[in-house]
């Protein structure tokens, strides 16, 4: 059986190379001898009910609102989260997984999907640039999460979730923390895309999705890039 990875509404939520997260997850399985397929599902088409991973990426205000409307109508993403499938949102995708977020110059409050206990409001200034965080509960080389952030919203995690990481360089949630985890639902700001730059995080998602530990998969190019990015930020 093939592991199914869904790129949710690539045309709405995919402006920061977010399809790359799907490519990375699928390749990391294939190279370990596990069949994997990436499905791109666009609005108007039903999301598959039987996938193991659902990916949501970056998008503009209007796209966020449309995505929430369509995903709520569709319902499959909520059912997926309930059965413990991995839901991974980046940037705008992270924001819409939350309870509420705002759009437009007048900061109109919009309901999110409610899969993460977070709320997003316009921050004091737009966060744009390289970001480096440390992943909670991890140590050594794999604790470092590196990426590029570009968002105007600041996100407050509520009691129902825990932050994914703590900010070393950059902005993240805006309060020193970065991202959020609630069961098998993840949200984070860095793209890059984030799973290309952070293979331990990619494998963590896959291990949850498959329910089994995975063999190591050395990729020296990725190690070099990670070292280069950390050095560029003075760490």
């Amino acid at each position: 059986m093939s592991v199914r990875i869904v790129l949710v509404y690539q045309s709405l939520l995919g402006i920061y190379g977010d399809r790359g997260n799907g490519t990375v997850l699928a390749e990391r399985l294939t190279r370990r001898g596990i069949d994997a397929e990436v499905l791109v599902v666009e609005p108007g088409t039903e999301l598959p009910e039987d996938a193991q991973v659902y990916l949501l990426g970056g998008g503009e205000d209007g796209a966020q609102t449309t995505a929430v409307r369509e995903l709520t109508k569709d319902g499959a993403l909520h059912r997926a989260a309930e059965r413990g499938a991995v839901v991974f949102g980046v940037c705008a995708g992270y924001q819409i997984l939350g309870n509420t977020f705002t759009v437009g110059d007048r900061q109109q409050e919009m309901p999110g999907l409610g899969l993460l206990d977070v709320d997003t409001r316009r921050g004091p200034e737009r966060a744009v640039g390289e970001i480096l965080t440390t992943w909670r509960g991890r140590s050594g080389e794999e604790q470092w999460i590196t990426g590029f952030e570009n968002h105007g919203g600041f996100t407050t995690p509520g009691p129902g979730c825990i932050p994914l990481a703590d900010v070393v360089v950059g902005v993240g949630n805006g309060d020193g923390t970065e991202g959020a985890v609630q069961g098998s639902v993840f949200g984070t700001y860095p793209h890059g895309p984030v799973l290309a730059r952070n293979p331990a995080l990619a494998d963590h998602l896959l291990e949850i999705a498959l329910g089994t530990p995975l063999d190591p998969l050395p990729m020296p190019e990725v190690d070099r890039l990670r070292a280069e990015r950390r050095k560029a930020l003075g760490h």
Partner: peptide, 9 residues
């Protein structure tokens, strides 16, 4: 452009 995420598109 400081963001290279486009490489994945």
């Amino acid at each position: 452009g400081k963001d290279l995420s486009w490489l994945w598109d």
